[in-house]
Amino acid sequence: FAEAIFEGALARGLIARAPTVEPITTADYPTPAKRPAYSRLDTGALERDFGVVLPEWQAALGSVLDTLSADR
């Protein structure tokens, strides 16, 4: 996700240079809370109960970055 943010910000001229992102595993960043190996937000109930369909994260990120670049 961080790499996508920097790539999109760079493409829109929000940053001059994207920093290097060093990927790490959960084991490399220990926290007191136990974390599942795989988790993702299930929006099925939101869609079923309220008819709200969230955009894919890539589209939502693009929209946010477009708004930030328009405000410059």
Rank of each mutant, 00 (worst) to 15 (best):
F1S: 14
F1H: 11
F1Y: 02
A2Q: 02
A2W: 00
E3K: 01
E3F: 00
A4L: 08
A4K: 05
A4Y: 00
I5F: 03
I5L: 07
I5W: 00
F6G: 06
G8L: 01
A9V: 03
A9T: 06
L10R: 01
A11V: 07
A11I: 05
R12D: 01
R12E: 02
R12W: 00
G13W: 01
G13P: 09
G13E: 02
G13L: 04
I15E: 01
I15C: 02
A16F: 00
A16G: 13
R17D: 14
R17G: 10
A18G: 03
A18T: 04
P19F: 00
T20K: 06
T20Y: 03
T20C: 07
T20Q: 12
V21D: 02
V21F: 00
V21P: 07
V21C: 02
V21R: 01
E22S: 09
E22I: 12
P23T: 10
I24Y: 00
I24L: 03
T26R: 04
T26K: 08
T26S: 12
A27S: 13
D28N: 08
Y29W: 06
Y29E: 11
Y29R: 12
Y29G: 12
T31L: 09
P32D: 11
P32M: 01
A33V: 14
A33M: 09
K34H: 09
K34N: 15
K34D: 15
R35K: 10
R35A: 14
R35E: 11
A37G: 15
A37D: 13
Y38C: 14
S39A: 15
S39L: 11
R40D: 15
R40F: 07
L41A: 15
L41G: 15
L41D: 15
L41N: 14
D42P: 08
D42V: 12
T43K: 02
G44E: 07
A45M: 10
L46Y: 05
L46V: 15
E47C: 08
R48E: 05
R48F: 03
R48I: 11
D49R: 06
D49M: 04
D49C: 05
F50H: 08
F50V: 08
G51Q: 01
G51W: 00
V52S: 04
V52F: 01
V53M: 05
V53R: 04
L54P: 14
L54E: 10
P55D: 12
P55N: 13
P55C: 11
P55L: 09
W57D: 15
W57H: 13
W57N: 15
Q58H: 09
A59N: 08
A60C: 08
L61V: 06
L61C: 06
S63T: 15
S63I: 14
V64W: 03
V64D: 09
D66Y: 01
T67H: 12
L68C: 04
S69T: 15
S69I: 10
A70H: 04
A70S: 11
D71I: 10
D71N: 13
